[in-house]
Design a protein around this nucleic acid. Structure first.
Lengths: 227, 227
DNA sequence: TTTTGTGAACGTGTTCACAGCG
DNA sequence: CGCTGTGAACACGTTCACAAAA
């Protein structure tokens, strides 16, 4: 299978969510056009994305909602459960644990670590908080994914510990670049960057006074409300 | 000024953070190569990004850390303060309010809204929570940015209310596409997508058993630890 | 000699447009 | 006729490579 682009995978995740909704609405089939409208993209993009993985549609009819949903589910690897280790039991960590969609999509937080002695031993959403010092020795726990929800300064050290503990993927919430071995997949969620790019955009439009709103719709930029 | 790509702006935000660190370390100058190493990218990329905005370096010497930091600060529009309205006083909203870096970079949360009567009237990090029903009428408050930290189902409605209230930019944490008028800038932080792309990547590598870790370093993917 | 700034080459993702099938 | 699947055209971001400057 050819290399799949990052953007394609991200959109697949979006399609998956749309399909859940559409299925809840009781629709049986959906065309690439309707699916695209829901996401504010082109139908060609939808078809191209799906075509990398197979032919799931029926010409003249569109896609069977339930079937396509299952296919994407399998493609994304959501048809299994993932063992997640969370490091950092602060605000972000708590928010994450409290988020129900987490477990719903197959991600089980099986361990929580923190450095603060006051927190160690406490329970967070039913999971006991352990001393992060014991993390590097947790290789036997079979963690698949590690989540870094610590202050920036601890991020790289925690990443190293997670790698030692054997995780194959890391989701990093700390606003700083961290380095991991090539075989470990890294994903970042950096609110600071989003906020600053917003600031940049507003700053710009103020300069270009009132002018053309500009159809700069790359990635997650704005888009006029569809119908 | 030519159109600046999204990726360039995001990197600018990263450079800014690196420069803060480097400045704290007491260094006076930095070359594009060293700056690039810190972010795990190429020096040509750094120079190209900066070149869109001017010539800030000195050939043979590199960039003056303090000066370049100020330039980027101005480019990103961080040399002013932004009035932020937060909608949703749940876990994500609280985490956000508690994050100190927020105000430090010029973002002042001047109002918090929620729908839950039990929360309305309470204070969150010093800000009184108001009824979200009053949001559409808040046009006089001069909000620049709106943050959506509500459950998915309320997201679009809240977005509409924020637009009515006059925000020019929206940061959406709800895992669903929302539509806004073209003149409003939209930015999304979707943890679900990140998690699912992680799942996809791990799922893939398991299939391609042990094989070449693959240098798929697009976007925020993994990278071998530098030096 | 070092390092910037930048056109040009390159690679990759998106859009087009249409053949193919239902 | 409607809609998918896809090669080809296109657009755009990244990397190269080198002239210019310190």
């Amino acid at each position: 299978m050819a290399r799949i682009s990052d953007s394609t995978v991200r959109r697949l995740s979006h399609y998956y969510r749309v399909l859940e909704e559409v299925q809840a609405e009781g629709r049986r089939m959906i065309s690439s056009r309707r699916l695209a409208e829901r996401e504010g993209i082109t139908s060609a993009q939808v078809r191209k994305d799906l075509s990398y993985f197979g032919s799931f549609g029926r010409r003249g009819l569109g896609y069977n909602v339930a079937h396509l949903r299952e296919e994407i589910r399998a493609i994304l690897g959501l048809d299994r459960r993932w063992r997640v280790a969370l490091v950092g039991a602060g605000h972000v960590g708590s928010a994450l644990l409290a988020y129900r969609g987490f477990a719903a999509q197959g991600f089980d937080v099986v361990a929580v670590y923190d450095r603060d002695p006051a927190r160690i031993g406490q329970k967070l959403s039913g999971v006991a908080i352990q001393d992060v010092a014991s993390l590097p020795a947790a290789a036997g726990q079979g963690f698949d994914i590690g989540v870094i929800a610590t202050p920036v300064r601890a991020a790289q050290e925690v990443a190293d510990a997670l790698v030692t503990a054997g995780v194959r993927g890391i989701l990093n919430f700390a606003p700083r670049k961290i380095f991991v071995p090539a075989q470990v997949t890294l994903r970042n969620v950096d609110m600071t960057v989003e906020l600053e790019t917003l600031s940049f955009a507003l700053h710009q439009t103020r300069r270009r006074r009132g002018g053309r709103g500009e159809g700069r719709d790359r990635g997650s930029a704005s888009r006029t409300r569809g119908q």
